[in-house]
Amino acid sequence: MREPSLLARMAESLFWIGRYVERADDTSRIIDSYLHRMLEDPTENEDVACRTLLAIMGVPTDRVDKVTTPDVLELLAYDAASSSSIIGSLSRARENAQGSRDVISTEMWECLNTTWFELPARRAQVSRTGPHAFLRSVRDRSSLFAGLTDATMNRSDAWRFVTLGRGIERIDMMTRLLAVRIASGVLAPDWGTLLRAAGAEEAFRQVYPGQESTELIAGFLMLDPYFPRSALFALTSVEGDLAALSDNAIRLGSRGDAQRIIGQARTTLEYSNPDELIHRLSEILELITTACADATEAITLRYFDKATWVQWESEAE
């Protein structure tokens, strides 16, 4: 029985569904941990913290006046027009799912569709319940979607494109978090916040009870082979997905470019000396960031390239 062929356009939609849902999930964790920190420590400079957060998410802040928490929530959570915001990401995920309904399961579609329909109401509730409930519901829905993806889809290429997108987004988010930690110097978030933002606090404390050093935390977030959100874990999973895809789609060049790019990044990370990691962190992060961007480009070129609108010109003698 041959594996059913997957339309290039569908593959692209699935990849972006994976990315957008993961982005909404990660963004909600990050915002939540920042809000939490500001509540715990009222001496925290709100403007600086907010700017840091926006920088992590790649949202430009050329504003001269003070950036406030409501501003951040608007930009990163509610702005439907932005692909960096939670509502923007979930809307785009649903839009992509609409175009690929016949390859995802009905339950996955209904999960995204219901989430989307409920967004305005949940957003409206924020004024009464605060943003935490909203952010929490986003994580719940994302987890439900991830669970349904794994529980209801055949392990076909279609499924792999969703997990591929999820993995790449996860790596991207982790490198963003760490990059800001390095770049912002004294204004950087403390490691505790970072662990929470990465959804790693409990997992870290189980492995290293009572310890908290820069080296250990950076090492855990980057190199831990068992923590599913570590950069190494995500790279390994992405590499696996790419390998399975190229088995099913043999063309010129037996190894896909994307797989080679991710494989090299994974190897560099895997065989780097944990003790040196903290000193070479910025170099390694840059390498991974570049690898993710290049891999996305290679995936697009190889699997999605042709799914574009064509504007016909007519000609007549």
Binding site: S5, L7, R9, R101, I250, Y303, K306
Partner: peptide, 26 residues
Amino acid sequence: RRMGIELVEGRDLVCHSNKLYMRTTS
């Protein structure tokens, strides 16, 4: 979905030599 067949848009399809093809990942 109920027929178990592909749902395509115009941009997924292309004609070569008077034959119709859909663009897939393979």
